[in-house]
Design a protein around this nucleic acid. Sequence first.
DNA 1: ATAGCGCCCTGGTGGC
DNA 2: TGCCACCAGGGCGCTA
Length: 288
Amino acid sequence: MPELPEVECVARALRQALIGRRLDRLDVRFAGVLRPSAAAVRAAAVGRTLVAVHRRGKYLILTFAAGARRQMASVAREGAGRDETHVMVHLRMTGQLFCDPQFRPDAHTHLALDFEGARVWYRDIRKFGRFTVVEDARTPRALAHVGQDMLEIGFAAWRERVASRRAPIKAVLLDQGVAAGIGNIYADETLFGARVHPLTPAAALDGAALRRIYGQARAVLRLAIRHGGTTYLNFLDFRGRPGNFRRKLRVYQREGEPCPRCATPIERRVVAGRSTRLCPRCQPQPPA
DNA sequence: ATAGCGCCCTGGTGGC
DNA sequence: TGCCACCAGGGCGCTA
């Protein structure tokens, strides 16, 4: 499942491969992923040049400017161009956005984005992903409820949002309104690294534990980015290759295996409605 | 304000 | 071997 590191890898690849290129054609095989409609997404993107790719949490925002490449210089000078348009992309569970000349579209391939000189595919087995036309790149209404990116937010701001919550810390880490980008895999890895039980109420954590969680979250996200993300189920990078962070996972998908620190078998349980892996010895249950 | 749940959707799994 | 109920899971909308 793409979380912050996987989306960051996609964002970097999109910037490198496509900035300055015009989208000539959008081939729609399944319109259900396009909001509010295929026509609206076409109007916002086709015939226009990709000028920026922003990421916030697991959201990508593609910014297009009218017409040809030479207009980009003026767009860059003026900052936010007057006639920029924006398409927000969320890959959800199984969305894949990639550029691979060898790829042949299958039943799960919903879009072909034909940029000048590069064909980009959108494939999504469960069809949960969305391309949504939004009105601005930085703070579209659609992201009003989404917090700062987990790699952008400072400790003080994060702590302020976390420390007042009585919900289990794992639920708070998954709450995209607190800070954006952490999903199930990195929540488990973060709490293992910080030696905190996922059921611990956030408000019950002391300053040292909050500091460890914040530091671990950022460290594990950055490490995963360096390794090209985690491939679980079907995440592939922009060139159709699997990320190799999965080997580095210490608890996720490892129930029954020995804890890498103390060899106690990793447990699985349900927290906040999500399957959760933890070491019962390194992450002792908080007193009830 | 906050928490919990059902929904979307499909492939994989386990039971019979 | 075949069929099928069930599960995973991010975000959103609804309810309590």
